[in-house]
Nucleic acid binder design. Structure first.
Lengths: 114, 114
DNA sequence: CCGTATCCGGGCAGATACTG
DNA sequence: CAGTATCTGCCCGGATACGG
């Protein structure tokens, strides 16, 4: 579907969705440390199936956060890396950590009081 | 369920979920401008039903982002406002806007090239 | 090695009707 | 006025099987 004005909701919502996938923060964490092959990511994050990993990586690519590089060799080789724009997201993610930790601390205190 | 170590996933994911509800950014936008009554929010955001608005507000309250104040009068009066912690989220949200706008600009350029 | 195709189950958002 | 109760539909993540 071609772009039309207003076809995406408010930018905040769009941004949240770009990072909001179940495994995206984790994938990004791995890729911030350097380029990784598909199988490497799969080994580094064993809880995610290849299917889901593929989907999440494609969405990150679609968002311009991750670059996918295919080497037409046999056997095939595919490398994933963070784009320049993707690197700019690291501070935001780090702030999200603080937000999440605040909530976790909140719940922990609530329990400790009982 | 009482708090147990590790019962919430990685903090980034938690943080994303805290803000990730369909209407939460919009609600927060309204509340950043000041305290609002339930009905006011409902009028300011006509696309959301009372049911969903209630759910989202309760989740924001649960996250410690929003405070709910009930006046036991007839007719009932309920006011919602941003907590101190909630105010600390404004910069993160603003960064998310930049992220979202980058994506929207990306899609726009892709279409313009055809 | 790096995927695609297909099906399935749970959770969240929406619509609608009712209430202290 | 500010909700609750109930039902429904959809999307996303997960499991499994197959393919270049």
């Amino acid at each position: 579907m071609p772009y039309q004005d207003g076809m995406y909701g408010c930018p905040v919502e769009v941004g949240l969705q770009m990072l909001g996938g179940k495994w995206k923060p984790r994938i990004l964490f791995e890729l911030f440390q350097g380029t990784r092959r598909f199988g490497e990511l799969n080994r580094l994050i064993p809880q995610v199936s290849r299917h889901v990993l593929t989907v999440q990586l494609r969405e990150l690519e679609e968002s311009g956060i991750v670059e996918r590089k295919v080497y037409p060799s046999v056997p095939p080789k595919v490398e994933y890396s963070i784009t320049e724009f993707g690197k700019s997201l690291q501070p935001v993610l780090e702030q999200m950590i603080a937000v999440g930790e605040h909530y976790i601390g909140l719940k922990k205190r609530e329990t400790d009081l009982r």
